[in-house]
Each structure stands twice: as structure tokens, then as C-alpha cells.
């Protein structure tokens, strides 16, 4: 059985027409199932876990990146695939997964191209794409063997799956199927041999710890923030996701 989890923001009247079109398309494709509408006080993780216990064969997140981010913890290490119907924004995760917005996403569901993808884990939170943190006050400990300290303004980015908002990076190195995470550190000052290329540093890793002495927060997949210290690690092949043919990996 397909279970469609509608995010709470879709309860607004302005989405009624679009949802009706999507539901018609779903019926036409023979993908009808149960609709679970989230309210402001309904716990999304519990809701999804309960639906899986009741026999859901596919969970479909209907909403934006935040909807996906909130559903991820309930899907970890299950064989149940996660589908996505992106509505409104931000939808950077869906774009990377090759899923177009609205009705067209139904065709991706119908094709049912399932990929088992890695996830990143940071202090019991999960991310599909990236973590972001400013350089200021940041120290990174890698495998307790060495520390990395950025000098100057800029950002620390940890990537599992590149999104299109990271044009300055070599996207082909960030693949959510390689069982590795990538650490990119970018600084604004431009001198030396990296002139014109930006001042980038790059590491591949499976686990590290981030500390920020100035209480700057880590942003998870662009939708949630957490404090440091934070232990970051790869969760290899942690989730089944229905992807489109235009995915970025």
C-alpha cells in the first residue's frame, strides 16, 4: 500500500487545486493509497513509523525539503522505499534526486526506479545532502589522528549528495552511493596558486567531529540547525529512495 504523507503546510486552501490534480494523476497511474495529513502537533516520525508497522509498502513525502528531512529518521534501515512529490520550496533535495515538482513527480513514482543511498548522520540527525557551518571558530577532528583548523572567513561544507546550490564544488566527487562523505572548506581570501579557482580544501572521510568555539550552529540539509560538538558519520546504504532519471549522481 502507498501511504502519502502530506506536510502540514498543504492544509492551506491555496494548495487544494494542485493536490486535487496530483491525486487525479495518482489514480490514473494506479498508485492510489492512503493519505496521512500532518497537523502542526502531529509527530511526523511517529506517524511514518506507525504507517510502516501497519504494512505500508511505500512512503511518499508530499511537501518540500523539510518534509523529506523530517521523514528520514523513520525510514532508516528499513527496506521501504521513500518517494517524493515536491510542492512549493525549497526543493533542492528533490532536484538532486531527479524529481520534478507537482504532477510530474507522479510519473517518477510510477517508474519506481529505486536506489539505495547513503545518508549522513550527525548527533542522531540524518542528512541526505549536506551540512553547512561557518569557518569562524570551527575545529575539525578527524579520526582522532589530526585536526583541521580553517584560517579566515568562509564555510565548512560536508556533502553526501551535491545539490545545485554548490556550483563552486566538483560535484562529481559527491555521490550518495560511494559510502563516503566529502569535506569541503572554502575561504573567501584570494591569493596564491588558487587565485581564480577559489581557496578550497578537500578531504574524504567516514567519521569526524566538529567543534565550534563561538557557538555557531550547523545547518542540516538547509532546513534544521544543531549545536556543536557534533559527530558526523556515514550511514552506508541507509535508505531506499525512488529517484528520477535526471538525478545528479
Amino acid at each position: 500500500m502507498h501511504v502519502y504523507v502530506y506536510d502540514s503546510f498543504l492544509n492551506q486552501k491555496k494548495y487544494a487545486s494542485l493536490l486535487a490534480k496530483i491525486e487525479t494523476r495518482i489514480t490514473d497511474l494506479g498508485l492510489s493509497g492512503k493519505i496521512s495529513r500532518l497537523g502542526l502537533i502531529k509527530n511526523i516520525k511517529e506517524t511514518v513509523e506507525n504507517e510502516i508497522k501497519r504494512g505500508a509498502k511505500t512512503i511518499i513525502a508530499v511537501g518540500n525539503d523539510q518534509t523529506i528531512s523530517e521523514i528520514l529518521p523513520a525510514m532508516i534501515n528499513t527496506q521501504i522505499p521513500l518517494g517524493v512529490i515536491p510542492i512549493d520550496g525549497p526543493n533542492k533535495l528533490s532536484v538532486s534526486l531527479g524529481i520534478e515538482s507537482g504532477e510530474r513527480a507522479c510519473d517518477v513514482l510510477s517508474a519506481r526506479r529505486i536506489e539505495r543511498l547513503d545518508l549522513g548522520e550527525v548527533n542522531k540527525n540524518y542528512f541526505l545532502s549536506n551540512l553547512f557551518l561557518v569557518n569562524d571558530g570551527t575545529i575539525i577532528e578527524m579520526n582522532k589522528d589530526f585536526t583541521i583548523e580553517p584560517i579566515g572567513e568562509g564555510s565548512v561544507n560536508i556533502l553526501n549528495m551535491a545539490t545545485l546550490n554548490y556550483p563552486m564544488f566538483e560535484n562529481e566527487k559527491s555521490n550518495p552511493r560511494d559510502e563516503k562523505l566529502e569535506l569541503y572548506i572554502e575561504t573567501k581570501r584570494r591569493r596564491g596558486v588558487f587565485q581564480g579557482e577559489g581557496r578550497k580544501s578537500f578531504f574524504v572521510f567516514k567519521t569526524l567531529t566538529i567543534i565550534n568555539t563561538k557557538n555557531n550552529l550547523i545547518t542540516i540539509d538547509g532546513v534544521k540547525q544543531i549545536d556543536t560538538p557534533a559527530e558526523v558519520k556515514i550511514l552506508p546504504k541507509g535508505i531506499n529512495i525512488i529517484v528520477g532519471k535526471n538525478r545528479t549522481f
Binding site: P150, R191, F202
Partner: peptide, 15 residues
């Protein structure tokens, strides 16, 4: 390159 330690980075330890 597998690893790039850029101009604005200090790395301490055994790499």
C-alpha cells in the same frame, strides 16, 4: 587529488 589542504588551512597531527 584525494586530499587538498588549501592555503587557508592548518592541519595538525598524523595524516
Amino acid at each position: 587529488a584525494e586530499t587538498i589542504i588549501g592555503p587557508s588551512l592548518k592541519v595538525k597531527g598524523d595524516f
